[in-house]
């Protein structure tokens, strides 16, 4: 598979993996820690969406499915599939617990991307595509345009029934 095409497709798969799992696990519903609330309110003040802001704040403040996806990709590259992904899931779980988070999103993200890496390896995807892809995916949420990204995340949260009740 062409490297550029592979990276773009891996970025899309990684984006869907972490955004859907994080939303399903309720990241837009409420801030897990004070820092996430500060980020969410700041994003809202700048014209963004509060639920999307909480999502962005939560993934900054604890290792959720975004970190799980990235760490599992790196661990699969460094150690092998599936051992790397399984070890990453354990490490992400302990990281979550240290960050006042019960750990469902992070471990689910790490385990799901491990399965995805294994399955897509049969159609020519390399593990390194997912490392680069995940960096690009997280860039679209946290690095380019906070307010626009938060509005998109807010719409997704509404569709999945995870929109925040806070104002």
């Amino acid at each position: 598979m062409n490297e550029i095409v592979g990276i773009v497709l891996a970025a899309i798969i990684s984006w869907l993996n972490f955004v859907l799992i994080d939303t399903w696990m309720g990241l837009p519903e409420s801030p897990g820690v004070k820092g996430a609330e500060v980020i969410g309110r700041s994003v809202k003040k700048r014209g963004g969406d509060l639920a999307g802001g909480f999502f962005q704040g939560n993934i900054v403040c604890s290792p959720d499915a975004s970190a799980g996806t990235l760490l599992a990709s790196i661990a699969c590259y460094a150690i092998g599939t599936p051992e790397g992904g399984l070890i990453a899931a354990v490490l992400v779980y302990f990281g979550n617990r240290l960050c006042a988070d019960p750990g469902y999103a992070g471990t689910t993200g790490a385990l799901s991307i491990t399965v995805i890496i294994f399955l897509t390896s049969f159609i020519g995807f390399k593990v390194e595509y997912f490392i680069v892809g995940m960096v690009l995916a997280i860039l679209t949420i946290q690095g380019l345009y906070h307010t626009g990204a938060s509005r998109l995340l807010g719409k997704l949260a509404k569709k999945m029934g995870r929109y925040t009740k806070l104002t």
């Binding site: 399984l86 899931a89 354990v90 019960p102 469902y104 999103a105």
Partner: peptide, 21 residues
């Protein structure tokens, strides 16, 4: 998703396969 209860499936099962890895 909000529960802190330690159960047999989560996190025990996840930890077991991770520790074996």
């Amino acid at each position: 998703r909000d529960s802190w209860t330690v159960s047999a499936i989560f996190p025990t099962a996840v930890l077991a396969i991770g520790f074996y890895a």
